[in-house]
Amino acid sequence: MKVSLIQMKVQKTKEESLLAAENGIRQAADAGADFAVLPEMFACPYETSGFPLYAEAEDGESVLRLSAAAKKHQIYLVGGSIPECDKEGRIYNTSFLFGRDGGLLARHRKAHLFDIDIKGGQFFKESAVLTAGDSATVFPTEFGPMGLCICYDIRFPELFRVMVDQGALVVFCPAAFNRTTGPKHWELLFRSRAVDNQIFMVGAAPAADETASYISYGHSIIVSPWGEILSQAGEQETILTEELDLSQVAEVREQLPLLKHRRPELY
């Protein structure tokens, strides 16, 4: 299974970002990718004040454009995330995932909202504007079940165990760590979740933009079930393409049967 991570900058307008995303999806398809993966908030500034301005319904322009791109290129598409507005006016940080026919396979609403205040570092409060999702997300593919989460969700191992219990072999994580948390925890968390659950971890981030109020750490990453980094970007715009040998999941689980050795009666 081949995956391409599209590490792109958020452009000045939503239209420009959508065009950049469509171009990245085309390049991923040209490279033979089965999955194209966009970053968290790929078409919206990562600012709480901007989320209501950019929010769309589930049948809004961004969703329709991503669906059409998946269908055009016959590729699975992890649509990063966008601010999604429901009929009651609640706003979610939502990732829409499309099949090769452009049909919606899954929708994950970020379950854990990014509310932090790090002394001398980053302050951010998603809950001031966003509503938290209420479910884990696993979806079927021709390669087997896959999981989907968003950014801050990666810090909660319980969510990953639920996805693995539902069969996930790979978990996709559109994310946008910053330069405070990224250098300390980005690689550590992706490798930890891969090793904990013996799965492939795939994280797509925006490229760094020095003019933005929130500067992404970038470093889109692909990690094996053994915890090895198969590919990792820097901060610049790029597309990472890597082939995942899914037989490694069963091999690692047989050699080091962590999931069989669990003691649920203790915890």
Score class of each variant (00 low, 15 high):
residue 17 S to K: 06
residue 132 A to K: 00
residue 77 L to T: 03
residue 223 V to P: 01
residue 115 D to N: 14
residue 149 C to V: 13
residue 12 K to E: 12
residue 109 R to E: 15
residue 256 L to V: 15
residue 59 D to T: 07
residue 39 P to K: 02
residue 110 K to P: 06
residue 261 H to N: 15
residue 44 C to V: 13
residue 143 F to P: 12
residue 128 A to E: 11
residue 210 E to C: 10
residue 192 S to Y: 14
residue 177 F to I: 13
residue 238 T to V: 13
residue 104 L to I: 10
residue 78 V to R: 00
residue 139 F to N: 01
residue 123 F to D: 14
residue 97 L to E: 08
residue 157 P to W: 07
residue 71 K to F: 15
residue 103 G to Y: 12
residue 111 A to S: 11
residue 63 V to D: 01
residue 226 W to I: 14
residue 53 L to C: 05
residue 40 E to K: 02
residue 248 Q to T: 10
residue 14 K to I: 15
residue 109 R to N: 12
residue 197 N to Q: 12
residue 218 G to Y: 01
residue 47 E to Y: 08
residue 195 V to G: 00
residue 211 T to A: 00
residue 260 K to Y: 10
residue 52 P to S: 09
residue 65 R to E: 04
residue 149 C to I: 13
residue 220 S to N: 08
residue 126 E to D: 14
residue 261 H to Y: 15
residue 184 K to T: 14
residue 36 A to M: 08
residue 52 P to L: 10
residue 83 P to C: 08
residue 31 A to R: 05
residue 194 A to C: 13
residue 44 C to D: 01
residue 250 A to T: 13
residue 246 L to I: 12
residue 189 L to D: 06
residue 84 E to A: 04
residue 182 G to K: 00
residue 262 R to Y: 12
residue 82 I to G: 03
residue 53 L to M: 07
residue 245 D to M: 02
residue 149 C to M: 13
residue 105 L to H: 05
residue 73 H to D: 01
residue 227 G to K: 05
residue 170 V to N: 02
residue 114 F to P: 03
residue 175 A to M: 10
residue 177 F to C: 07
residue 121 G to A: 13
residue 235 E to D: 14
residue 123 F to R: 03
residue 87 K to F: 11
residue 238 T to G: 06
residue 175 A to W: 09
residue 49 S to L: 11
residue 230 L to I: 09
residue 24 G to I: 04
residue 168 A to E: 15
residue 34 D to C: 07
residue 133 G to P: 10
residue 78 V to M: 09
residue 239 I to R: 01
residue 34 D to K: 00
residue 98 F to N: 05
residue 146 M to A: 07
residue 25 I to N: 00
residue 35 F to N: 09
residue 184 K to G: 09
residue 140 P to E: 11
residue 151 C to D: 10
residue 249 V to T: 05
residue 72 K to E: 15
residue 150 I to E: 03
residue 55 A to N: 00
residue 192 S to C: 14
residue 101 D to R: 08
residue 70 A to K: 00
residue 84 E to K: 02
residue 76 Y to C: 02
residue 200 F to G: 01
residue 154 I to V: 15
residue 124 F to M: 11
residue 78 V to H: 02
residue 40 E to C: 07
